[in-house]
């Protein structure tokens, strides 16, 4: 089983961290993982994305034309990556910032109001963690406990954000389960 993911949004929405946490969780479960960011002049202010592959087998290409899962956090990302989801794949849309959807019928489309939920929890910045929780619930690529551990470990030094982010992944997970 190989899960390929492109997660995309504005710079500053935390999509790289979303991807990194997924990769760390895969690693924790003894799987093969690779994470690769888009890098370059477009990084500042513009759109930003990363690709993550989690697999039971050794991973070849980190460059994926048609990933089997895509998470889009803003509208330009939907336009860019929506068409690239592989048939039968999953497209997860952040409905707080995207009021449209994809017209594709050959894929599964899910939504999560990630920013709204994060704001309810006290800080819009945690939208990426809400989306991550939902993503894990929908794909089951890693166990929920694993992702929770990764969040805890990575925010251990930033105590002021720890609780917020834990609640954010939990909420995202519950909503999508």
């Amino acid at each position: 089983m190989t899960t390929e993911l492109i997660v995309a949004g504005f710079g500053g929405q935390g999509v790289l961290l979303f991807g990194k946490f997924l990769a760390l969780s895969g690693l924790k479960e003894g799987k093969e993982v690779v994470w690769i960011p888009s890098y370059g002049p477009e990084m500042r202010g513009g759109t930003c994305n990363c690709t993550v592959v989690v697999s039971e087998d050794p991973i070849g290409s980190p460059i994926i034309d048609s990933p089997n899962t895509v998470v889009v956090m803003n509208k330009p990302s939907l336009a860019k990556f929506g068409p690239r989801v592989s048939p039968d794949g999953l497209l997860l849309i952040n409905s707080s910032l995207i009021d449209t959807t994809s017209d594709r019928t050959d894929i599964r489309i899910e939504t999560v109001p990630a920013n709204d939920i994060a704001l309810e929890l006290g800080n819009g910045k945690a939208a990426n963690m809400v989306a991550l929780g939902a993503y894990v619930a929908l794909t089951k690529v890693v166990k929920f406990d694993t992702i929770l551990d990764v969040v805890k470990e990575n925010f251990a030094k930033k105590k002021e954000f720890l609780d917020l982010n834990i609640r954010a992944v939990k909420k995202g997970y519950e909503l999508a389960s």
Binding site: K20, V34, I36, P62, I63
Partner: peptide, 10 residues
């Protein structure tokens, strides 16, 4: 190449 440098793996 730039890809190897930017890529994360275990």
């Amino acid at each position: 190449d730039g890809m190897l440098g930017q890529m994360m793996e275990p």
